[in-house]
């Protein structure tokens, strides 16, 4: 059944339209992916669904109920949970306390918050870090803490914003299984992700956003074949200065260097699209090799382009 329905949502920041009449949905029991180049409005859309951002126009429905004007904390009680692209773990609490805060928040649902917390720590594999302060664990682990915390409120709809960045290849693999597992229990999982290999493996439906507009929706195979998607990703007939114009407020769609846009020119166009790993601008440390890429010699899963 359709858990989430986003109908013609528009978000404007001043003169910049971050999301332009986007209509997407997420079904229970499925993994739905939301992809698009940097600045396409994915995180902004997540913020609209969770109520952290008021839409300029359009409506949001959860299980058929209009929640467009429902405050964030009430949406959470109706079963929406999320993780953040930029970490929002509670830094001064331990990993276990992070999850416990969420488990306590829905006491009525959870008979035994302590037990729920322990269970999630085991399930996500955070035993080693349970007593560590959340601001002392590596980024990848902190993302898992956010996932566990979101799961602690036992959501019907789970929104994950780039959950695999910071995970190793092996960890990403088992993370994909976890996603399938979560969906198979009837949850709707909506995921924003730059790791195309992961997306192609786990998604049932993919929505593609470009500059705030929905340009394609469908199964992984359908989306890969879509000419509009190819154009958006490969940047054909694209004026470079447009990027600036469509970059919304940095607070909402931070530009941390993630990009899926390949160099437009070159004979490699038909080759596998390597997901560029996150490269924070000021970081002197080379990025983690993650996912398939030309250097690694591995074929991209699903034959993405």
């Amino acid at each position: 059944m359709t858990r989430l329905d986003v109908k013609e949502v528009t978000v404007r920041f001043g003169g910049v339209t971050a999301v332009d009449k986007a209509t997407i949905s997420a079904e229970g029991g499925q993994v739905t992916a939301l992809i698009g180049p940097n600045g396409a409005g994915k995180t902004t859309l997540f913020n609209v669904v969770t109520g952290l951002q008021k839409p300029t126009g359009g409506r949001v429905f959860l299980d058929g109920h209009d929640i467009t004007h429902t405050p964030t904390h009430r949406r959470a009680r109706h079963g929406i949970a999320r993780t953040f692209q930029r970490l929002e773990a509670f830094g001064s609490l331990t990993v276990e306390e992070n999850i416990r805060v969420a488990a306590d928040a829905v006491r009525a649902k959870n008979a035994k918050p302590a037990k729920v917390t322990r269970g999630l720590i085991e399930r996500i594999g955070l035993e080693r870090y349970a007593d560590a302060r959340a601001d002392s664990v590596p980024t990848g682990v902190a993302r898992l803490v956010e996932l566990a915390r979101a799961l602690a409120i036992d959501p019907e709809l789970l929104l994950l914003d780039e959950p695999s960045s910071g995970l190793s290849e092996a960890e990403t693999e088992s993370f994909g299984e976890l996603l399938r597992d979560l969906a198979s229990q009837g949850r709707a999982v909506l995921i924003v992700e730059h790791d195309m290999g992961l997306i192609m493996r786990v998604s049932d439906v993919i929505h593609v956003l470009d500059r705030g507009r929905l340009i394609a929706s469908g199964t992984p195979a359908e989306v890969q074949a879509d000419p509009l998607v190819r154009k958006a990703y490969l940047g054909e007939e694209d004026e470079p200065e447009d990027d600036e114009e469509h970059e919304p407020d940095a607070e909402h769609e931070p530009d941390d260097g993630h990009t899926l846009v390949l160099p437009a020119a070159g004979p490699d166009d038909a080759a596998a699209l390597p997901p560029t790993p996150p490269v924070p601008p000021a970081s002197p440390v080379p990025p983690l090799p993650k996912g398939p890429g030309p250097e690694s010699g591995e074929p991209a899963s699903g034959g993405w382009f």
Partner: peptide
């Protein structure tokens, strides 16, 4: 923000 998304 995270607290609000957890229902607090």
């Amino acid at each position: 923000a995270a607290c609000a998304t957890l229902g607090l």
